[in-house]
């Protein structure tokens, strides 16, 4: 059995796939490429492929990570051949970027994720609002879910929020950190900026541009940080 780190990007209509549908589409991509995935044990064996950090529905991404386990015969083929076959059978919008063999089974823990999105409105007001949000020591918002309501302090997990004037508004860029109590969501960050700027809280062209992971089975502080592969990431961004 071999363990692999699969790097992929998401764009176009594939942005609207859920986390589970994304994982299923990747599993089928492997099957079409003739690469047999290892199965979990138990009553209902499942292919061993997990997308490490779920993407928000509607968000594009340029470099996501999945951990994949294959049966032994896959490792006997050159990685370039595996990549070629995966790319040839990938779903439109779910682009295979890279495949690297992992050393053991990595237990990756997300540390931070960086997003970019566009918000419509006066650029000056949005820039001022982003600066104001970034400067807050505490910014509490209410989160509703089927389990009820709870409050979240956006400031506790928000880093490097900035705004840059765009044609019909501003492009927000920010990083959210992952802690024990979760993290801020894109719509919550955008909502806080939009409320301050007095504009409609709608995020357009959301892209997750980077994710940082830490952790390994041995507890070694190993990081899987990659720069966007040159010339490949741009096509992962929906240009709508």
């Amino acid at each position: 059995m071999s363990t692999w780190l699969l790097h992929f990007s998401r764009s176009g209509a594939a942005r609207y796939m859920s986390h589970l549908d994304t994982a299923r589409a990747l599993q089928r991509t492997f099957a079409r490429a003739g690469i047999t995935l290892a199965l979990s044990a138990g009553m209902r064996p499942r292919p061993r492929l997990s997308v490490v950090l779920p993407l928000p529905v509607g968000a594009a991404a340029v470099d996501e990570l999945a951990v994949v386990e294959t049966v032994a015969d896959a490792a006997a083929r050159p990685v370039t051949a595996l990549l070629r076959d995966l790319e040839a059978t990938a779903v439109a919008g779910l682009q295979i970027e890279d495949l690297e063999e992992a050393d053991g089974r990595p237990h990756l823990r997300p540390v931070a994720a960086t997003y970019a999105c566009r918000v419509r409105g006066p650029a000056a007001a949005l820039t001022e609002a982003a600066e104001w949000v970034a400067g807050q020591d505490e910014l509490v918002v209410e989160r509703r879910s089927p389990k009820g309501r709870r409050t979240i302090d956006l400031a506790a997990s928000l880093d490097a929020l900035s705004a840059e004037a765009a044609s019909d508004g501003a492009t927000l860029t920010f990083t959210v950190r992952y802690g024990e109590t979760g993290t801020a969501r894109v719509d919550e960050v955008v909502g806080a900026v939009a409320a301050r700027a007095g504009v409609e809280a709608v995020a357009h062209d959301v892209v997750r541009t980077a994710v940082k992971f830490a952790g390994s089975p041995a507890g070694e502080a190993r990081r899987y940080e990659r720069a966007r592969p040159s010339g490949r990431g741009e096509k992962g961004v929906d240009a709508k």
Binding site: Q27, R28, T29, A31, R32, G34, P47
Partner: peptide, 8 residues
């Protein structure tokens, strides 16, 4: 069809 779709 199994090969073309990737279904299990």
């Amino acid at each position: 069809a199994l090969r073309r779709t990737g279904c299990d």
